[in-house]
Design a protein around this nucleic acid. Structure first.
Lengths: 231, 231
DNA sequence: TCTAATTATTGTAATTTGGACAATAATTTA
DNA sequence: TAAATTATTGTCCAAATTACAATAATTAGA
């Protein structure tokens, strides 16, 4: 086994790639940027940036999110790390992928210094992306689906107040299977929801009641082991 | 937002940390090394090494595993990446943790060049480790438990032929709860096991039948969507 | 205003699963 | 051969799941 000089190891860089997932029109979408610089200029890509030498990973991920959306205080979930030796044409760059769940309608996207254009793209309809970003995106999407099934993060994708049907549709999309309406409502009866008096607006039929997720009650329940979130 | 020179980013290193989990005496254990070099010389640590500039992440993880155990062809699972700016006293080193499941009795551990001593240590009984290794170990253990509940990897920890009781005990340990024997057997009836004629040896009571996991049938079943592994 | 259309919401009965516990079987030891 | 010990199977009841039916609330149009 050969040994290289210790300092020769310190010739690499790392980056974060932040996959921002949103949900609209019954589909999960990712926010992509059109790269404004080399390499892969003009190709669509996952927003990301090199990590500063004194910066924490999560901090870097939050920085990228903020530059693009102006949003703070959004939970970032670490997904996986990708590091094939030749994945970046300009040197050895290992990238750590993070994802966050956003409400598309809650903010306006700002194209940043390194992005010429920004767009929500449905996962069913993904073009060829820069670097190994198609691979990163699809494996991060798998991780999202796993987490959606085990943690109550679906509410980060839904509007603050949602109908039970919207909730159900998101789960049907996630599991790629249809549920019976009546049975879905029984299935979720142990998830603490707040029922509001407010109703759905502008629909051509009986409007549905609006609900919101009761975070506080859920946190309490977790502590007392009253439930774990399992769909 | 300040910008540093592009080349200043290429001053970091990355490492893999390989957590080797084994199962014996009703407990899950990790293989730790006593560090033979600075920093943290003589402290117990997770085996790991810097990644060579032209080396793939998984390849590096397999190299560490091989140096320590002589084992090849063991599935490595990527866990999480840790990168607090000051986690390594000699520079910026981000580490990617991998884990593998081993049958303790199937090989002999060899202390390697960078390890003075090697030992299986129960997770219930963990000393202070080098670097942020206590943190890495405990969060990787959480990921192991999650995967044990969703993928049939428990069989990598059990002997090739096992009794249903051994299988049950591993699950009781994982879930930290006891199951009724009869009911456990119903619960697992959709997991394809091969029943052998062979029986348990050298026990002071009725010997139990030995089973092994039917990988082929499981893979087939997965393809046809006949089952997903959920405990 | 009344009726059809549409979707929301609740209920019911049958089936399946899960948990508690009892009964029987196969060994070893003395 | 009997006692001890653990393996394995069976049974009953409660709980969860499923399929499907019934009722409620709203809009649109006659």
């Amino acid at each position: 086994m050969y040994r290289i000089d210790f300092n020769d190891f310190f010739t690499s860089a790392f980056s974060v790639d932040c996959i921002l997932f949103g949900y609209s029109e019954g589909e999960i979408k990712a926010l992509l940027i059109k790269r404004a610089m080399q390499p892969f200029e003009n190709l669509w890509a996952i927003p990301g940036d090199l990590i500063y030498p004194d910066e924490d990973l999560e901090q870097a991920a939050e920085r990228v999110l903020f530059e693009l959306t102006g949003l703070n205080n959004i939970a970032m979930h670490q997904s996986q790390t990708f590091g094939k030796p030749n994945r970046h044409p300009q040197g050895r760059v290992i990238t750590i992928s993070y994802f966050a769940l956003l409400r598309i309608e809650d903010f306006e996207v700002k194209a940043s210094s390194w992005a010429g254009d920004v767009q929500w793209v449905s996962l069913k309809n993904m073009p060829d992306l820069a670097f190994d970003h198609n691979h990163i995106l699809s494996s991060t999407y798998e991780m999202l689906k796993l987490k959606l099934q085990n943690e109550p993060i679906c509410f980060d994708l839904l509007p603050e107040r949602f109908t039970l049907n919207e909730f159900q549709q998101l789960y049907e999309f996630t599991f790629d299977q249809a549920f019976d309406k009546a049975n879905f409502r029984k299935k979720i009866k142990n998830i603490p929801l707040i029922a509001h008096d407010e109703k759905q607006q502008n629909v051509k039929h009986r409007p549905a009641k609006l609900f919101s997720f009761d975070k506080l009650s859920y946190a309490e329940g977790l502590e007392q082991n009253r439930y774990t979130f399992k769909m």
